[in-house]
Design a protein around this nucleic acid. Sequence first.
DNA 1: TATGAATGAGCCTTCATTCAT
DNA 2: TATGAATGAAGGCTCATTCAT
Lengths: 224, 224, 224, 224
Amino acid sequence: MLSMKNNRSGSEKGESETRESRGIPDDPKKRAKYQAIIEAALEAFSEYGYHDCPVSRIARKANVADGTIYLYFANKEEVLISVFQEKINLMISEIEKQTRDCDNAWKKIEKLVRFHITVLGDNPVMANFFQIQLRQSSEKIRRGIASPLRGFYRLIESFVVEGQEEEIIDPRINPNIARKVIFGSIDEVVSCWVRSRRRYDVKERIDDTLYILGRALLVDGVRA
Amino acid sequence: MLSMKNNRSGSEKGESETRESRGIPDDPKKRAKYQAIIEAALEAFSEYGYHDCPVSRIARKANVADGTIYLYFANKEEVLISVFQEKINLMISEIEKQTRDCDNAWKKIEKLVRFHITVLGDNPVMANFFQIQLRQSSEKIRRGIASPLRGFYRLIESFVVEGQEEEIIDPRINPNIARKVIFGSIDEVVSCWVRSRRRYDVKERIDDTLYILGRALLVDGVRA
Amino acid sequence: MLSMKNNRSGSEKGESETRESRGIPDDPKKRAKYQAIIEAALEAFSEYGYHDCPVSRIARKANVADGTIYLYFANKEEVLISVFQEKINLMISEIEKQTRDCDNAWKKIEKLVRFHITVLGDNPVMANFFQIQLRQSSEKIRRGIASPLRGFYRLIESFVVEGQEEEIIDPRINPNIARKVIFGSIDEVVSCWVRSRRRYDVKERIDDTLYILGRALLVDGVRA
Amino acid sequence: MLSMKNNRSGSEKGESETRESRGIPDDPKKRAKYQAIIEAALEAFSEYGYHDCPVSRIARKANVADGTIYLYFANKEEVLISVFQEKINLMISEIEKQTRDCDNAWKKIEKLVRFHITVLGDNPVMANFFQIQLRQSSEKIRRGIASPLRGFYRLIESFVVEGQEEEIIDPRINPNIARKVIFGSIDEVVSCWVRSRRRYDVKERIDDTLYILGRALLVDGVRA
DNA sequence: TATGAATGAGCCTTCATTCAT
DNA sequence: TATGAATGAAGGCTCATTCAT
């Protein structure tokens, strides 16, 4: 099983407390403020764009002082990274929970695709954050995002491998590439929808997407 | 055939000389300087990241004064957009040329995928630009990029439709979604490679990618 | 009586905290810094001229960082406007105070003229500011200055009307034009002196000016 | 008589040709271009404001290249000064002509006031230029304007002295101050009208202004 | 722990002026 | 003489971050 759940430290190398990450507070009062900042940042970034969103705007939204942000996060980049960590980890746990009792690996992939698109489709703020704000050119941000994203990647890939073990997914498929096709497809579907200013309902695209992904992965006998 | 080739004007409405786009110079001397700035910007953005790359750095690289940039582009955002226009249009023309005498639509898709990954795989600077720098959160940039990108999208989609007419691609596939799967897959494959700091050779991933895309699209009889 | 005294808010519409004016701070510590900037700006503008005086020079003179200016004023134009507001309102209050127990309206006008020329005559920095720096071609500045200036205009005009009610000023005189003659005369007297680089003492011109203004306004019986 | 007419050199000290002024061209073709620039500048300054009017805008309006401006004027400041010189000298000549056969000095003053306000009142572009654009804080501009302005001042003052010689103007009046009262009054009347965005007709204010000025200057017996 | 005033580095952009053609 | 592309200095302003309270 994926042991991602609480591995939310800023970097995988365990630079415990210094610059890169101040960690997630244990004290419930602090934890609440930490969460408030995360949620405020999510909204603020989506609303104004990462680079056009001053830290003061996050603070204002979170009902804290500007300086308070820096008691919880090392800097603005860390805030963005932490928002992503929080959200992607929630997503991963939820998908793990929901796929736990699926009959087979393809059902899990189906669930994952459906869940991911549905969540973002129902949540414009998060969709904007994931598809637009996250893609910053800053090296530090990219590195900070890499690790939690890997958790999501591994989840998908594990489903593919599982499917191959169950002999419902073509064994000649490279699972790593399959993961990229799956993730890339979802990502593109959602990105286009966000860029279209959400003029249609993405959820209506789920079945067509799954149809193609099913063709791509499943051995002939299994395809409906 | 797609008539995208030389449609590189800044805006779709053809406002010859407004703020948003100063157009591409006809005078060959100016054209050369325009190109020099484009190339310098491509490099500079890739090297430092769009937001961490002052206009002065582009100017320096292009061997022109800071102010000169503004004789050719309305502002920094326009530079980024123009670099993309220039490059994506080159790519489109080249793909159109190379696919002109393919036997069937699938060969064209194969060519496109292979070409796209190869070009970026051989060109780290451009890869970084396409996969990282281009994804800015600025609304204006996103809009500026949308139109030339659409040309690329249309090209892919036209191949899918062609394949369906040739009855080698599953008619039940939604071509628009197929395009997203194809583009999303390429994009993810290249992005991961760039993010890995190009620690391997992407071109080695082409066949595996095409294998999955072939499964995804082709009717059973055609698949090798 | 004119209720101008403390009406120093940035805009007439009472928009408490908008861009255009950050208001005058209540907190005494901030108020002190606000005043320091005002005084520094007055000096700096007079010394270098509005357009040739970078904000950084004001900051330096006020012993604050450049950015601090923008915590107190929305932009450079607002600084100029605020300096004027501050100074003209002081002037108005002082004149109101000093004219309160004058025997008649003409004495008030006399006082006003004498006071105005004396203050500027004794204060080259302020004179330069009022006569030179204030007259900027920027529309926004002109509008910002208009409202506090109107307070000064009204004061003069009220004296003229009063004089007519007292039957010492010719009733056939248009008080609005009389105000313009009075103000225009003072203004020209001081301006010429400033432009002469203060090569003489303006205060010596007061009596001659008042002699002419007395002739202009007073009914024959009253003139000395 | 005033010998101002063609004394339009940049400075009174006769620094013939070097920096400060390139003089007015004799060659009629050049003279035409010189005039075209003057007129274009007058318009452009009025329209955009001196500081917000790039030299290129003047060039455009004058149908010449930017660089051409510098063949006729040493710099932008010189352009402003020259516009003023041209216009004020025209004004002076015209007033001299029109007052040549006035019965007495007061009629001349009347004519001058009426003429000045009428010309500006009928010519918003020139009014804006004289009342707003001209008042720049730049030391160099102020000095450049001083000399031609002095011609206008002298004209007014000469009328006052004449009036005193004719014994229609109070001999106890200081002619220099009288000139300031006259000029200051006109200036204020026109300035207020310009600042009001010309919402009324200034010419309607002429009589009221003259009434007050007549009271101010004329000996009792002469006043109507 | 929380505040928010203060900092000051840094960047985009403008535009007067020059000069090769 | 005329052009207009090129220059590059300069400045207003923002905002991430700090630190005294």
